[in-house]
Write a protein that binds this DNA or RNA. Sequence first.
DNA 1: CTGAAAGCGCTAACAA
DNA 2: TTGTTAGCGCTTTCAG
Lengths: 343, 343
Amino acid sequence: MSDISDPPARRTLTLRDVSEASGVSEMTVSRVLRNRGDVSEATREKVREAARALGYVPNKIAGALASNRVNLVAVIIPSMSNMVFPEVMGGINAQLEETELQPVVGITDYLPEKEEKVLYEMLSWRPSGIIIAGLEHTDAARAMLQNSGIPVVEIMDTDGTPVDCCVGISHRRAGREMAEAILAAGYRRIGFMGTKMALDHRARKRYEGFVEGLAKGGVELADWEFYEGGSALGKGRELTAAILDRTPDLDFLYFSNDLIGAGGLLLAQERGLDIPGRLGMAGFNGVELLQGLPTKLATIDSCRKEIGREAAKMVMARADGSLPAETVSLTPSLDPGETMRTV
Amino acid sequence: MSDISDPPARRTLTLRDVSEASGVSEMTVSRVLRNRGDVSEATREKVREAARALGYVPNKIAGALASNRVNLVAVIIPSMSNMVFPEVMGGINAQLEETELQPVVGITDYLPEKEEKVLYEMLSWRPSGIIIAGLEHTDAARAMLQNSGIPVVEIMDTDGTPVDCCVGISHRRAGREMAEAILAAGYRRIGFMGTKMALDHRARKRYEGFVEGLAKGGVELADWEFYEGGSALGKGRELTAAILDRTPDLDFLYFSNDLIGAGGLLLAQERGLDIPGRLGMAGFNGVELLQGLPTKLATIDSCRKEIGREAAKMVMARADGSLPAETVSLTPSLDPGETMRTV
DNA sequence: CTGAAAGCGCTAACAA
DNA sequence: TTGTTAGCGCTTTCAG
């Protein structure tokens, strides 16, 4: 049985509570708490004191509904365990740091249907902008992006047609350039290792660009090996062991990313192969993590942090109308490391 | 001048638009779109068709305000570039996958004031629960957590007093166990390498537990080396070179994490040291990434994924009142790898 | 099974 | 400088 001295059921506090506690109108309390409009220092102090004493936390849901403003930027990426995307996030965060805007992340696991779902979910919170990885989306997703009426920035990839703005690198070109560099260094029996990439469009484009680059030099892939599941050093070892056993005369191995590349490199060194003389190797991404391995793997930088920063800038610029739709294609540099003969 | 045929200024669509397009009341449209209550299949179809045709995306802001329900779980972690936290996120995601709940991440960069700010920001969206790393928070942050009226789960660490629920491992004990194992294996001249950890409480606790474990065996740290900045292979090399040059008779190196440990291991091997005979080494975390290095580093697993999963479960259970406040301390296992003598 | 009315907590716009 | 009045777009509640 309820006693008269029972504490009232705990509600979360509202502006009204602060208003009553401070003897100031709700509107003015709202002004103080948002630093909007002119309020005398005296009332400011009263209000702040009351809010602090009560432990009032404003309700952004109500605020957003009333003001039609949401200081959230939706960021939709395939994965968080990929080393690449956390760094992109780092760039976005850094750029948004001094802003009102806050990133909110959604993960797609490289699945188009999941991307569509996550996008729908995010849009239903009416964010101020969207940063989304890749240029390939379902028709429904494209339609949502187009109709959202908010800035959309597609990132990572520039090989395709963006909905609105876009910043990234050309993976096709990165593949091609690596092929050209390899041929220029005199390698001819070339093997490729990468993911089964039906849904990883950027990996696919690098692969296509690579094959195309070789073809222009009159060379065909001598062997290849695809894998599924997390990219890691161990995978690289396995794949490399397999491909070298099958095709021992390969003189170059191109890996779809630095991590499996590093695994392959370690294996090749254990086998005592002369690198880069007898066998050259290269990866992709330019991940810093691996600085510190005995030998530095050749790679092409994927400009992750810069992409993040630039994307955040574009969202902001586009939001205040100071930017037309545009595509920014960054130019990654090839670092031959110590695993490619120099020309 | 505005022509009569100008398209109307684009508003985002509302329930009312769908209602008008389908000739069904707003209320019924709402029911259909949320699968609530009984609605005849005929009207269902009409409504869904209209919504799809218009490209209607519900406004969760309004929905949340009206229903006082937000299917968001705030996740507050120190960093995304640490390998550890993406894996925790993976666990949380996996567990929340089949639920209505969606995680929203906030990053603190290990800064207490930033944690406070991020928490405030998150709470203002009235999430259904909070998962937050660590047990150390500012007084204000603790107060907010306590007064939030929603499930709070503190994760990673169990050495301390949680606000509500808690799941993690005892880092102090992990440090102590490693010390005991090292002493049991007969090592005596022991060096430590880790971060300058004023704000990384878990690293500090491991260190303290380690020193304490040695002390119980009558051994003191022979040398130590602290660093700042990202943990990476390169850092591990540098530190290890420095400490070995300064104190060449060390017979064991304990690293604050696997990554710098791996760097140290590579360096020690290059120097031709006999491992684990002449020199033993160990890290912490049990990161999979490194499987594939020539030698497997001794480590203690930090149970990241399981922590994430368990935390998500606890939030849900706590939300429907089916769980009292509790602390779950997982028991990580020590893997001696190939860098510790076996007893 | 369907609809009408009232309000969620806040802020825009105006009035004093 | 401060207060008042209407909603924001949805869901709850209650009445058909």
